[in-house]
Design a protein around this nucleic acid. Structure first.
Length: 285
DNA sequence: CTAGGATCCTGTCAGC
DNA sequence: TGCTGACAGGATCCTA
């Protein structure tokens, strides 16, 4: 999915466009994608939009909340006076809404619409009250944001998984919030740590560097609008994936490492496709 | 308790 | 062309 920077990009984009708008009607096209009762949010106004890790939290004026998680292929597209699309990048960014991947959409009283699309149906929109939000299992386990956690806390959290490889550990949302497959590979590359390194082998200096690089990479991505900007075009004008430009190693297998020119390798670690430079991120540490 | 693998679901792509 | 298996920017459940 969309990782923390993409969800933050969505949060900022929606904050500018749908605050104070009234939800006239909720259209549920796929039951699995909508949890809770739509009647609690219909006729309500959007008060604010928050984010915890990769979870979007939309508050309504009756103190109900919509929790939105995009998982692997979720995206949100707003069509109003302009079009704002972010999340999983695919042709939906350019096609007519609702599309075959639209699972839920919100019709606002001013005639504009917000579409929740999700090819694989892993994501969801969930309606909860204050208590439901407090008791949510995911949010309860979720660690602090990359900018709020201290190097000591991060190192301590990592020690709960000392025999697991470091890549699996930083993907664990109870260790640090918001890291996903792209930023895990990118941060480990930047930190010169082999993704398969057993977590307990990393000393406090190494984990401090890793945290610092996670912060840098995510901030850089947020500053440029997430890695999934709708309007990104290559210099020749063709549709381009921002990721191609942003990433140093992610999906760059068999291309030269930007630091040492060795070819980037792709393998499978922690059940996920993993990209690294065998020269810059040596296995034996 | 942890670690690793299967699983949810749809679509695309490489290789026969 | 048609089939098959692998894989995908995530998280949970199950097993040992």
């Amino acid at each position: 999915m969309p990782e923390l920077p993409e969800v933050e990009t969505i949060r900022r984009g929606l904050e500018k466009r749908i605050i104070n708008k009234q939800i006239k009607k909720v259209h549920v096209l796929c039951e699995k994608s909508f949890i809770g009762n739509a009647k609690y949010i219909q006729k309500q106004n959007i008060v604010n939009i928050d984010r915890r890790g990769k979870m979007l939290l939309i508050k309504l004026n009756n103190d109900m909340y919509m929790m939105i998680h995009l998982r692997m292929t979720g995206q949100l597209i707003y069509e109003g006076s302009d079009k704002f699309a972010a999340g999983h990048p695919d042709d939906n960014f350019y096609t007519k809404m609702p599309s075959r991947h639209t699972r839920v959409y919100f019709e606002f009283s001013d005639g504009t619409n917000l579409f929740f699309n999700d090819q694989r149906k892993f994501g969801f929109v969930k309606v909860v009250d204050e208590l439901g939000l407090q008791e949510d299992k995911f949010l309860q386990k979720l660690a602090k944001e990359p900018w709020d956690i201290t190097a000591e806390e991060f190192h301590q959290n990592l020690q709960r998984h000392q025999n697991q490889c470091i890549k699996a550990s930083i993907l664990d949302q109870s260790v640090i919030a918001g890291v996903g497959n792209i930023y895990a590979d990118e941060a480990l590359f930047m930190s010169k740590i082999f993704p398969g390194t057993i977590t307990k082998k990393l000393d406090t200096v190494a984990t401090k560097t890793l945290l610092h690089n996670i912060q840098i990479i995510m901030q850089r991505s947020i500053d440029s609008g997430g890695s999934t900007m709708k309007d990104y075009r290559k210099s020749d004008g063709s549709k381009g994936n921002y990721l191609e430009k942003f990433a140093q190693v992610f999906r760059k297998e068999n291309q030269p490492c930007p630091v040492c020119q060795s070819l980037i390798q792709k393998t499978r670690i922690a059940g996920r496709g993993t990209h690294f430079c065998s020269h810059c991120q040596p296995q034996d540490r």
